[in-house]
Amino acid sequence: MTDVSIVSFAQAPNVRATHGTTNGVEMLVPILREALDGAGLAKQDIGFWCSGSSDYLAGRAFSFIAAVDAIGAFPPIHESHVEADAAWALYEAWVKIRTGEVDTALVYGFGKSSAGVLRRVLAMQLDPYSVAPLWPDAVSVAGLQARLGLDQGLWTEQDMAEVAARSRGANPNAQVHERVTAEELLDRPYLADPLRRHDCPPVTDGAAVVVLATAERARELTPNPARIIGMAHRVESAQLGARELTASPSTAAAAAAVGTDGATLAELHAPFTHQEILLRRALRLGDEVTVNPSGGPLCGNPMFAAGLARIGEAATRVPPGERAIAHATSGPLLQQNLVCVLEGE
């Protein structure tokens, strides 16, 4: 099957709240242009478009349709949409190129998380019969998972704070940036025992765009494409109680399907500190692997774009000849995970 590469990547500034419209599509307009310019392509050159977003972020049916206007989708485009993080849209686009039907694709994700009360909106993802009627919010549910690992001795609050300290110092351009030690962070109060604010992602409005092309075409378009070596994703049961919550079997299975050996860099879509620790183990990442040089979702978590941004960040950061792992997640407590392995060219 056809090899596919990432040609360009652009992302909107990660901010706590944009002045933009409820669905946040105007964050897309400048970065669509930036990503297309980065690939030296015009919108008419794109063979397939695919996006990821959620109606419930904006509280309206079909909120993604507004994005079709932002694209300037006329003449009509060959397009699809996933109601999930746009990393899954990238997966769909990757498959589309591999069918041989198209040789370029543009993938985007966007969301204005600040329009509603995000942690409460996300309770709507839980089992609609026996869990969601209680409105357990995303932070509380993550706290249950974190404590399972704390009690089992799989990680400590110190470990979690170290993840936060490293992430917060990683990227001066991130939404959250501070030079801080784990000890200083541990002196701060609990947000929801056992989680402190630094264990949780910020609320972020944002958007991201990635342009893909066949590996052959990619070399014509950019001097440094990142080739997709493989990509796989898996979902776990919806029964929280029945899941293995202190491991991530779906991440491990996706990684095994792709083969992740030899990576030197990883961008992990771990919205909570303990989830980074858990994912590093599922992916069997050693200390030699640089994790989340972008700061990761702990420093900017644009819903429905953050997973795609991990792939874009990994693609832009992986040096020629080296391999990077990009990971994306969807659903409560890492229910669904995607692993993408990239090689710099």
């Binding site: 993604f64 349709i65 949409h81 996933v82 994703h233 898996r234 979902v235 919806a238 079997p249």
Partner: peptide
């Protein structure tokens, strides 16, 4: 469960 699951939404 244990497999790839993709959710499509095109109105």
């Amino acid at each position: 469960a244990g497999k790839p699951l993709l959710r499509v939404h095109t109105a």
